[in-house]
Design a protein around this nucleic acid. Sequence first.
DNA 1: CCGTAATACCTCGTAATCGATGTATTGTTC
DNA 2: GAACAATACATCGATTACGAGGTATTACGG
Lengths: 174, 174
Amino acid sequence: MLELAILGFLYDAPLHGYELRKRITALTGHVKPVAESTLYPAIKRLEKAGLLGRATEPGAVAAPRHVLTLTEEGRRELRRRLAEPAQQDITDENRWFTVLAFLRHLDDAPAQAGVLRRRLAFLEEPASFFYDGERPLRAEELDDPFRRGLLTIARATSRAELAWLRETIASLDD
Amino acid sequence: MLELAILGFLYDAPLHGYELRKRITALTGHVKPVAESTLYPAIKRLEKAGLLGRATEPGAVAAPRHVLTLTEEGRRELRRRLAEPAQQDITDENRWFTVLAFLRHLDDAPAQAGVLRRRLAFLEEPASFFYDGERPLRAEELDDPFRRGLLTIARATSRAELAWLRETIASLDD
DNA sequence: CCGTAATACCTCGTAATCGATGTATTGTTC
DNA sequence: GAACAATACATCGATTACGAGGTATTACGG
């Protein structure tokens, strides 16, 4: 998720680590903050893997900046990760939102539609959080107001997203 | 999140690891699967911390089972974690849903309402995923259909949850 | 001129997680 | 009767993440 965000932001423009951190914080930080001690090692990993390069520039205000740029391999890697997301990128909302935030970079309508279809298939599977043996329990069947709320919220989310997915897939298919 | 789920399920009834795993998979597995190699060490951690005890019973079908029971300290710990969730339990949907799934165990309406109020306050903060400098961007301002969808979905979810939270807090306050 | 905040980067130890793999038993299917 | 799935638990190494702490500079208010 973090690596995807790094690649995604750098696809648009070279950035230094500190700026990258602010953008990632704006994107996902209110939900799941990213520690600096996670970001900088992640940058190093990607650099070591040849996905990005760095150039040192004098800092605008303080210490010198390490401006990060995607290599051609890095650009390919982002497109690959967007075109073939891991299953958890599809099912986990946090990760899925990160995929959505950068999916435009895929720049290939059928491939984009394919990714949306995977999410659609996932949301269309009948799934609950609570079961009576095999049978999924409906919100109305639960005494617990909190679990009932959980199902209610999940269903509302799902309905909104399904509508958007169907609409967007249709428009990509044109 | 995993530890909370373990404590939460065991609060109701003693279970062996394998059964625990099935319940956790039903609860959160379609979104974020839990590997066995994560669950068993987590059980050991909690056991070592004195939160749960184990008793070996002959297996119903195969190998002997380790039936896990919450100790009194484990029961206190669950209530404590539910009454004072970490900030990420409030903001991260996956973790928040786990809190909701077990919040009834808190068994104290004002404390439950307090937890819901924290989530309410979080959702009421104006937050976007995309910014123009300081100013949060609205869905309508984005060209990118995927980012627009992301905001649309997030807003729909948020609206549904806000309604439920306000309603439930009101009924807990009676 | 002193403290604080912001900019900008980094390391270290610890903890958590995962995938792969291993062990042993019972029940079911070909 | 030989596979195979399901039950039931466990370890190990590699990866990832986090909190705490560190370094250095500029800008600003008191």
